[in-house]
Design a protein around this nucleic acid. Sequence first.
DNA 1: GTGTTTATTTCGGGG
DNA 2: CCCCGAAGTAAACAC
Lengths: 275, 275
Amino acid sequence: MAVPVAPGTVAFCARHGYGAVVTVERFPSPDAATVARVVGDGLREGAVVSIEANCEIEYDGRSGGYLAPGDRLVVCKPDGTLLVHRPSGHKPVNWMPGGATIKVEPGEDDDAPLLYARRSNPNEFLRVYLGDVYSVSRFDATDAVEYQEHGTEAEMHEYIEANPEDALEDGIRILEHERETQYGYLDFFAQDAEGTPVVVEVKRRQATLNNFDQLKRYMELYRESNPDVRGMLVAPSTSDRVKRALRDEGLEFVRLAEFDVETREASETTLTDFS
Amino acid sequence: MAVPVAPGTVAFCARHGYGAVVTVERFPSPDAATVARVVGDGLREGAVVSIEANCEIEYDGRSGGYLAPGDRLVVCKPDGTLLVHRPSGHKPVNWMPGGATIKVEPGEDDDAPLLYARRSNPNEFLRVYLGDVYSVSRFDATDAVEYQEHGTEAEMHEYIEANPEDALEDGIRILEHERETQYGYLDFFAQDAEGTPVVVEVKRRQATLNNFDQLKRYMELYRESNPDVRGMLVAPSTSDRVKRALRDEGLEFVRLAEFDVETREASETTLTDFS
DNA sequence: GTGTTTATTTCGGGG
DNA sequence: CCCCGAAGTAAACAC
């Protein structure tokens, strides 16, 4: 499966259906010129480039920061994303969201090569001084499929719209979904069995004080003209504080147990369920 | 600089002060047993393990999802973080936050090895079926320094506390910082030149409708006892809709131009500024 | 632990 | 483009 590649590199082949293709090329202890070439060519040609290096970082833009030298994993994507990961933590310590322009300036003489990312709106930049590059890897990744997600707020909306009486209360009718008002977007505008209008705000997770605020904001508009309008905060659960705040405002909490992630045990489905 | 390693692997040395140390070990086209060993040993011994592979992913927990096979970069950290990155986008398509237990089950016969991460509270899991592993890399990263950040909301608070008259208005006095109330935490509680109390909510970025809600919530408490209490939303900018909402409620917007990231051009400081 | 808020939030949808 | 709101938000911090 060996494929000819530039001397000094290590190439691995993929078992692609259409024959052997070099998918990953790895450059051990590359010099500055090699780093610049691999990053430049790789990103231009649509590959993901990962760098394991000891580096020093400067960021300035929406905030500013400095990170003294240490070992990090740097990931560059062809869409202009740059991520710097430390050995722990979910979030990168520094990053640039997609859309940035990434380039490498090979350092002069003994200088560290500089990985530089810049973008505008907002104006910001990231400088990664690659003091000691252990390894660079070019990954020509092909990944076209779409991620399929379920259990989102959109699904909860669909459920409520399809089963308002089960989800909310007997006799309720949905009049509008995602209604735009002067104060923002209502999730639902409904009418109860007595014909009283109901403003409905839906949350997929435990409802917070901010969610209560949001419902209250929407209510203002309707209470002026009709003091009897009802307001419902619909969620799998909420805190006592939020319940009290709702009660004080004459608003209601509607528990949607069907969507409670804690009671609904992780289902351990197998891949066959998806096929 | 060569260091003896297991046959079939590629090892790169770091120029560490205390002598040659294998920092990165790379395993091209590893079999399932090698993947299991490298991930297991690596994570246990505190290394970051990166995998370039064609894989298929299942997630279930707070939401649920499925991603059909494609080429992705998988990063495993010793703190139990797992990230799956596609060739574009800032956020991983799937992940597990720190604290998860990560293990690899070598697939039987021709089965793909399974990278499995699980955690509780909330209960969730991630399954990564490594159908075609192009390369695995073990990175014994040493990174102890702390990230230094500036331009945070905390700094904005310090500025306001130190220069309330410049930041807010002439004659104003800060009485309390981070005051706890029944309805949450006020950023500042102040008093204007006439002795009227002022509730101050500070945002580092453009203020949103939600921020307006928050200020309004804090105001309720004080308006009961003193209808003349003033409310200020302090931010570098905000939308017209928020300004109108504030006006309708008798609240004020205070623009803090000093912290506007758009007007304050990225400063292009050099590393010497930090030393 | 739970509750609340921030974030270099990122992301997507609609006007 | 901006505005607005969701997110498997994660992380920090108070209680």
